[in-house]
C-alpha cells in the first residue's frame, strides 16, 4: 500500500540520518585520538588514581590505551597499556 511504502521510505531516511550522525561523531572522536599522539595526557582513574603519560595509540574498540613514560605513584613505567575501563576521564592541551 501507499502508506506502508511511505513509512518504509521515512524509515530509510531515518536510518540514513542516524548513519550520518554516527559517522560524524566517530570521525570526530578518531580525530581527537589522533591529535593526542605523542602528547602528554593526564588520566584520572578509579580509586582516585591520577597519572600522566605520553599518548601512543588506542585500539579501535576503545579498550586499551598504549602509552609511554607513565608516571605512576611508585615510579616511571617506560611502556604501558592502560585499561579504558579503569579510566574516568583524561585531558590534554591542544
Amino acid at each position: 500500500s501507499i502508506s506502508s511504502s511511505a513509512a518504509s521510505e521515512s524509515d530509510s531516511e531515518q536510518l540514513q540520518k542516524e548513519q550520518h550522525a554516527r559517522s560524524v561523531l566517530r570521525e570526530g572522536f578518531l580525530r581527537c585520538l589522533l591529535s593526542m599522539t605523542n602528547k602528554k595526557v593526564q588520566f584520572q582513574m578509579y580509586e582516585n588514581v591520577k597519572v600522566e603519560a605520553t599518548f601512543g595509540a588506542s585500539d579501535i574498540d576503545v579498550l586499551n590505551f598504549q602509552v609511554s613514560d607513565l608516571h605512576t605513584p611508585i615510579g616511571v613505567q617506560k611502556e604501558a597499556l592502560i585499561r579504558c575501563q579503569d579510566v574516568i576521564s583524561f585531558t590534554f592541551d591542544i
Binding site: 578518531l30 601512543g56 586499551n64
Partner: peptide, 18 residues
C-alpha cells in the same frame, strides 16, 4: 589507528598498568 596500536605494542611490549 589499529595498525599503529598493534605496531606500537609489538615494538614496545607494554605491560598493563596497574
Amino acid at each position: 589507528m589499529q595498525l599503529t596500536f598493534e605496531r606500537n605494542c609489538d615494538r614496545k611490549q607494554p605491560k598493563y598498568w596497574p
